[in-house]
Amino acid sequence: MKTSVVVFPGSNCDLDVVHAVRATLQTEASLVWHEDSELPEGTELVVLPGGFSYGDYLRCGAMAAKSRIIGAVRKHAERGLPLLGICNGFQVLTETGLLPGALLANRSLSFICDYCHVRVERNDTPFTCMYGKGQVLRIPIAHYEGLYFLPAADLDALEREGRVVFRYCSPEGDVDERFSPNGSLNGIAGVTNTRGNVLGMMPHPERAGESLLGSSDGAVLWRSLHKWLEGSLGK
């Protein structure tokens, strides 16, 4: 799996993603500088990592969404190849318009770093094809702006189209406002585009890659991508 991880000034989970991909799949991932205009030849997966791109000044992800590399990232997504935005990367994707919605300040008005549980709502995407539908993952979040927002009508449409991939839940898988750490509407933790090849998620799969560190539930996401890419390329 040829993975490219975009580095914006202020990204700080870029190396963690590289490590997670390497530890899970024993393949290298390359770093791509935000000022480049092309992705490395043959890139199959693009990851926009977490962090504080441009200091998160103005609005989270807003300035990164105007970086030179975004043109190539957009083309990559248009070709139907997988594009994953994690945390700040999710914020960048909503700012580029590749995903709907916006991420607002947490209900608590505090940064929250903690483990939470999310339920896999769809396992027919490149990112989740090796999870079970309804499976509960224990996975960390670390953000100040993670409250997923969409105007009511758009939210209904999103739900109707089944574009919610992850939802905050209890350890048993129950979805309720109480289990949403940041106040996200409908407990939304991750959404995809209509085509299903662009995923934005606030939880950090790269931080749940080894049981030594507390959870390995996130590793399956990289394995899913690997499997999906092998399958789709074999077609």
Binding site: A62, E95, A102, L104, F149, L150
Partner: peptide, 9 residues
């Protein structure tokens, strides 16, 4: 339109 304001919110 291009940067300073996110019209959705």
């Amino acid at each position: 339109g291009e940067l300073l304001v996110n019209n959705l919110i």
